[in-house]
Nucleic acid binder design. Structure first.
Lengths: 366, 366
DNA sequence: AGGAACGTTGACAGCGCTACCAGCACAGAC
DNA sequence: GTCTGTGCTGGTAGCGCTGTCAACGTTCCT
């Protein structure tokens, strides 16, 4: 019942060259640097290739040229909505280039990342995109020694390996809390899941903002190592409420958790934002559609992936970017779930009127 | 500022062979078929490879052996939650094999699919995973002529190219409608976005079920080619409501739309399920957490991807599956949003009591 | 006019690995 | 003792392409 392997009837570069009446090497050049050919030969090779339906053998090319046209991408999760947006940006940018994407999943493990990095580097990728700035010493050493351009994505920080694109999760969290302060909230809880380095930094931002205001209390923070989900948001919020019934706002480390909190409030008949305000993180599409609409911190995920891949490809092709570290910033998108609290602390009128208000900020990290 | 290309200090198979005191070809065999070596040489090569940190050059291997260890995967969307689950399954299955995944996005275009297929096939992949059964004639011809195992995923139908794994979207939709009938609903609307072939077949299932009951009306169907989103769910539902205010249930072609409908009902103060019942499709995680909890048709996405990749790898390695066509079925997960309607058609008591009830069915296609 | 400089082309020699086939040693059969 | 079969090993010859360098013709400069 087998699908038999047919004899390779493939046309090679030599065939194309013969039909075009040039040497193989000239034909080869046509595919790598057409400008180097005279117009006459260029058109001859082009039409010969088209006529024969020539497709280059990438393995042979890689072997002869000692480099591949593969961009390695290391991300911590395939499930997470956030990464699917980033990935889409990366794939879109790669689509019109000659580079192909090799994706691997570290599952939020730095050791797995180290292993995959070793694997990738051994194949001499044209470039590398890695997530975050928390590599192991060993990984960092490999990255520093790598002979290809590298982009770190998702956040920015000191000591880039090479290029870097992202924003400050710390400042984004601070901005979210500042927004809640401005709306009159004081007892603000924090809900976080997975607690990967970036969520941790959002927590750090929350803590510092609360401390600055003299309002920090450890019992306002509920976190878990469990992967995030909507259901988990409800569960964590339930915990939080049990610890601190007087809470007047919740900052959720991501939007799934925020949606879970929204549903849990509905279940408990807690009015949003009159009794409790909610702010999420990432501004996924559903946030604008929920009832009430949910405030969130917008991050430019597609743009991040797209720009990362574009910068990387440019760097591979010898056009290094002016600014190797790019801060994409964030925006606090103010919606109904965090409408102003009345000064007398009684329920405010449901603020359904105005559309989304935005507060845009660069990450402004040091 | 450049990151300079260092001289390739890589260790080759020949070095390993020399250290082990065997010929290169014997060392080569060690990596492909260790059983063919005597135990003595096997251990010698193994330790030599470890000592030198040898990593095979895949390009050279591919060139010499005339085949790659790449599995091509063609999916229509990277954004869609549904595919991220399938992909995770595929990546997980590939992780412990020697095959790597090459992913490409057809963006729901069969022409793009055709182009990508041509590209993939030219590189002689070890295997191929393609989405759906609606390839162009040209694509179909290429697949039939391909000399590698192929799995079609997401749905099942007649004339598999090779292997096939999925379920019947048609039957799944019919089961959803049957469930609504059983709960006493009659005027059931359909809301669909994107309208790719699988959504189309869900619509077909809906139409046939409604016609069987003598209840079909064209104005109960609202669809759009626009990509799906929660917000769109609300908008389409609004349309539907304007056309047919007397509607008592909505079947949504996916869960995002269902969530949008839920929010829109809340906005309009329409009671669920008393005034309108909602059924979604796919059973994403948030469906169980929403208020009210949302009925949906569970599909086994992770398992689909995982099994597809496993079957494919087995087939590549010469172990063809007993059943090349696998129906993974579906389950109608009954939740609050479609609780029984009272016979007298007045609002029923909110059915918050019981947990999820399930109705499991094989796709039962012909 | 002579030479340098440039743009364009081609010959050669591998890149690191494996397919194929030959050869060797040893066991068992006759 | 010879023959055949089996298990293991090695030699040879590429896979299809590109890096390097040399060579050619033409133009421009002095």
């Amino acid at each position: 019942m087998g699908r038999n392997r047919t004899k390779s009837g493939k046309i090679r570069l030599a065939e194309v060259a013969e039909l075009a009446g040039v040497s193989p090497i000239t034909a080869s050049r046509f595919f790598r640097n057409p400008e180097a050919l005279s117009v006459a030969k260029r058109t001859r090779v082009e039409s010969a290739a088209r006529e024969l339906g020539y497709v280059p053998n990438l393995a042979a090319r890689a072997l002869a040229s000692q480099r591949t046209e593969v961009i390695g991408v290391l991300i911590p999760s395939l499930t997470n909505n956030v990464f699917s947006d980033v990935l889409r940006g990366i794939y879109d940018a790669s689509e019109n280039s000659r580079y192909s994407i090799q994706l691997s999943n570290t599952r939020y493990s730095v050791l797995q990342e180290e292993k995959l990095l070793r694997l990738f580097l051994a194949q001499k990728p044209a470039g590398l995109i890695v997530t975050g700035i928390d590599q192991t010493t060993e990984s960092r050493a490999m990255l520093d020694a790598a002979d290809c351009p590298i982009v770190q994505i998702m956040e920015i920080g000191p000591n880039p390996v090479d290029m870097m694109i992202g924003f400050s999760h710390y400042e984004a969290a601070r901005a979210a809390i500042a927004h809640l302060f401005a709306q009159g909230h004081r007892k603000i809880g924090f809900v976080g899941a997975r607690m990967d380095p970036r969520v941790q930094r959002r927590l750090d931002g929350y803590v510092s903002a609360m401390k600055d205001a003299g309002l920090f209390e450890q019992r306002l923070v509920v976190t878990t190592a469990t992967p995030t989900s909507v259901t988990l948001g409800g569960a964590l919020f339930t915990d939080l409420l049990a610890r601190e019934p007087g809470m007047d706002a919740v900052f959720c480390a991501n939007d799934d958790l925020a949606l879970g909190v929204l549903f849990e409030c509905r279940r408990r008949e807690i009015a949003i934002p009159e009794q409790i305000a909610i702010v999420g993180f990432n501004d996924l599409e559903f946030m604008a559609s929920a009832v009430p609409t949910l405030t969130s911190v917008r991050t430019n995920r597609y743009e991040m992936g797209n720009t990362a891949a574009t910068m990387l490809i440019d760097a591979i092709d010898g056009r290094r970017p002016e600014h190797p570290v790019l801060d994409l910033g964030f925006k606090v998108i103010e919606r109904q779930s965090s409408s102003p609290r009345r000064a007398d602390n009684r329920p405010a009128v449901s603020g359904a009127g105005a559309a989304n208000k935005m507060v845009a900020l660069p990450s402004g990290h040091d």
